[in-house]
Design a protein around this nucleic acid. Structure first.
Lengths: 247, 247
DNA sequence: TGTTGCGATTGACCAGCGTCAATTCATTTA
DNA sequence: TAAATGAATTGACGCTGGTCAATCGCAACA
């Protein structure tokens, strides 16, 4: 087990790209059978336990990662040890494509937040596919461009919104992604993150996170019990970061 | 002159993609002569005066813009009127590709900061080129991915660095791009931006910008006279945002 | 030359939030 | 059951930087 130093290769040989459950939700859905054959040959499945690192900032990029199960956090850290949690990556998502496509080393690190199974497709395979199938390139272009759009939105948010407003916004995003949002009415769901990581997602400290949570509770906007969040009225949460919607 | 409502079509008919001075520095350098012919047909040249808007946040994307001369600022504004200056776009750069590639409307607005000449290539032409030439797609993938990398770095910077450190960093970036950096020693160059826009680039207010400039002067890190900046020792500027480099 | 207008600067004020330190709570281990 | 470890919370404090308002400098123009 050389390689990254962590992440164990899956013993189960039955897994492959043809039977893959999430393939239709990935970029690879535009590939022909012959191309999937190629993809399958350049593939290794790996498994990670929570806390294990998938790649480090500064590592050379060796391929892209295809999430099958679990959850991964992408973190960026500066020289002083301050860090920000940029993305949460979930099944059907692709991971690590930015470095490959930019022709750079990784500029962020990825770490399993839950038990995770991922397929690694090596760079030459991805490159070869991209060079011969323009549709795949267009798929990736869409993905990267959308990602850039979110990043730019985040820059604006961080510059203009308060910690509280950013947290309210984060709650909405997490609710959309991980909660069963039954349209209107009271909502309850499980946060997939620790307080520390919630803080890192909005660029603040755990202390400020705690205080913000407390204040939102006393204002009746949301109730927190461990990782369970209860939101009585969705509108009052939205009002926290988009007050103009209700004018 | 319907269209965007601003920007006048260039009268000079002699300009085209074959004679274009900046083409080799753009994504289009990978195109064949036949493809450049196509590009040239889908092209209109426009000129803008400082302050004129090239596209607005929310506008549908009608093509990509190819900078020939001048300078453009890409700005993102929220509902309260707070705004951030995300990029400066200069000759040889492409503008507005994000929305096209993501299949979205513009999420930011672009405005000429200097007298500017731009070629507009309409969406169908770009799409068609991308669908048939994978190399072009790879070029754009590299560009968007690098852009995403910078955006992510900016998120980290804004979250962890002080206004002063961010400004020092901005000065370095502007120096690299717009100044003649004669390796070491004292350096002098012209800022391409007003104080207001300098502030918008690092996500702060003009007032804080002023105070930061004043404090940096009294600390001897840089001297400011209007838009002229004089930096006695480059290292002391770098020390402002990367102190660990000198430990 | 006076006036208007705009960008830049300065001052005064203070709220938000980061920092440091102590405490509580939950979970694991001996 | 006690001890130990790490996450989460709470308190106290102070600085950074945002806000509001006044002033200044400079250019355009009547």
């Amino acid at each position: 087990m050389a390689d990254t130093g962590s992440g164990s290769q899956s013993g189960s040989g039955s897994i492959n790209c043809f039977t893959c459950q999430v393939r239709d939700r990935t970029e690879w859905c535009v590939l022909s059978d012959a191309e999937i054959e190629l993809l399958n040959k350049g593939r290794i499945t790996k498994e990670y336990l929570p806390g294990e690192v998938i790649f480090h900032e500064g590592d050379p990029c060796r391929g892209v990662f295809c999430m099958e199960t679990g959850m991964v956090g992408v973190r960026k850290t500066d020289a002083d040890g301050n860090s920000v949690l940029l993305y949460l990556v979930t099944p059907g998502d692709t991971l690590g494509y930015r470095a490959l496509l930019a022709g750079e080393d990784y500029q962020a690190s990825a770490e399993a937040l839950e038990p995770t199974r991922i397929c690694v497709i090596d760079s030459p395979t991805v490159r070869s596919l991209l060079e011969h199938n323009p549709a795949l390139g267009l798929r990736y272009l869409k993905r990267v461009s959308r990602s850039l759009g979110s990043a730019e939105e985040k820059i604006l948010h961080n510059a203009t919104l308060s910690v509280r407003a950013r947290f309210a916004h984060l709650l909405m995003v997490l609710l959309d992604k991980y909660g069963h949002k039954n349209s209107e009415g009271p909502t309850e769901f499980e946060l997939p993150l620790s307080r520390h990581d919630l803080a890192a997602m909005i660029g603040t400290t755990p202390e400020s996170m705690s205080r913000t949570i407390k204040k939102m509770e006393s204002d009746g906007v949301a109730k927190f019990a461990g990782r369970t969040v209860h939101i009585p009225v969705l509108e009052s949460l939205i009002m926290e970061f988009e007050p103009e919607t209700f004018l």
